[in-house]
């Protein structure tokens, strides 16, 4: 696959800044695997991770998913670690909250007195926090394996096959397409606002942001008119249908997935 967006171009900037995942999904070494199978695999894996909730299993999933994404999917290491750090704030904060217990009397081994209440860490609460931390990381790595190997339109086609309401999947198709067009417009507007010193200071920044957002919305609505004409010009009749072709499902892949799930099952049985 040779998707080449020249580095340094405007397009490249946009994709790296906002759509990093989409960019690497298009380039992924796992792109040509059957997309229904990829979605099913990721989803089943997610369900097992959250249902079993054992540290060993979570660790195994994190390692397996990261290695697959890095080695098979050929996602650059730097990009992968950068992506993994995105959810960290949320996870760390909420795990601290789970770990720390507040009460009117001292609890557990470690605690701080806060005048009226005590903040402490008990064995149980700490264990829950650690478990949740690894579980969430495992969940995120599973999601990344899917999103870094399957472009959104292919995921939407899988949803179509699952008989989700037509309106819903049609809107998803169009929204995915339009996101890139709007980013392009938004980016150009922001640059031109910056060129006119629109982002100096909080007050001007707010005004400029609102201006950009407002004109972005207007241009979006105006464009949507022309886009509807373009749909009609090719005989659109209320149904948005495309040729959807699947990459073939290979026996080798089914077998490896089966082995993977057996291993998961064993870890779930014996692990802690």
């Amino acid at each position: 696959m040779s998707v080449c967006v020249p580095p340094g171009s405007k397009q490249f900037f946009l994709l790296v800044k906002f759509m990093l995942i989409d960019h690497y999904a298009q380039l992924s070494g796992l792109r040509k695997y059957n997309s229904s199978a990829k979605v099913a695999f990721a989803f089943l894996n997610l369900c097992i991770v959250i249902a079993v909730n054992k540290i060993t299993l979570s660790l195994f999933v994190i390692v397996f998913m990261s290695l697959t994404a890095l080695l098979k999917g050929k996602t650059p290491f730097k990009v992968y670690t950068r992506l993994m750090s995105i959810p960290l704030t949320f996870i760390v904060l909420s795990c601290i909250m789970i770990g720390v217990e507040f009460s009117s009397r001292p609890l557990g081994k470690y605690f701080i007195s806060l005048h009226f209440i005590y903040a402490g860490i008990t064995r149980n609460s700490a264990l829950t926090a650690v478990k949740v931390f690894f579980k969430a990381m495992a969940g995120i790595s599973s999601l990344y394996l899917l999103s870094l190997s399957t472009p959104v339109n292919e995921i939407v086609m899988v949803l179509e096959r699952l008989r989700l309401p037509k309106i819903f999947t049609e809107l998803m198709h169009l929204i995915y397409r339009y996101i890139f067009i709007l980013f392009d417009t938004a980016f150009r507007m922001q640059i031109s606002a910056k060129a006119r010193l629109g982002f100096c200071g909080f007050k001007t920044s707010c005004k400029s942001f609102a201006m950009v957002a407002g004109s972005l919305f207007i241009s979006a609505l105006k464009k949507s008119q022309a886009y509807y004409d373009a749909l009609l010009s090719r005989g659109y009749d209320g149904r948005l249908e495309f040729l959807s072709e699947e990459y073939p499902l290979k026996a080798r892949h089914i077998l490896s997935a089966a082995i993977y799930f057996v291993v998961l099952f064993l870890i779930a049985k014996v692990g802690v």
Partner: peptide, 27 residues
């Protein structure tokens, strides 16, 4: 959609707009 078929591209654009707005950095 039944009342106004043009709404499909309009709603899709609106959805894309919400997405883009939520991805832009705010002051």
């Amino acid at each position: 959609f039944a009342e106004n078929r043009r709404a499909i591209t309009m709603l899709a654009m609106s959805g894309a707009f919400i997405f883009v707005i939520s991805a832009l950095k705010i002051p």
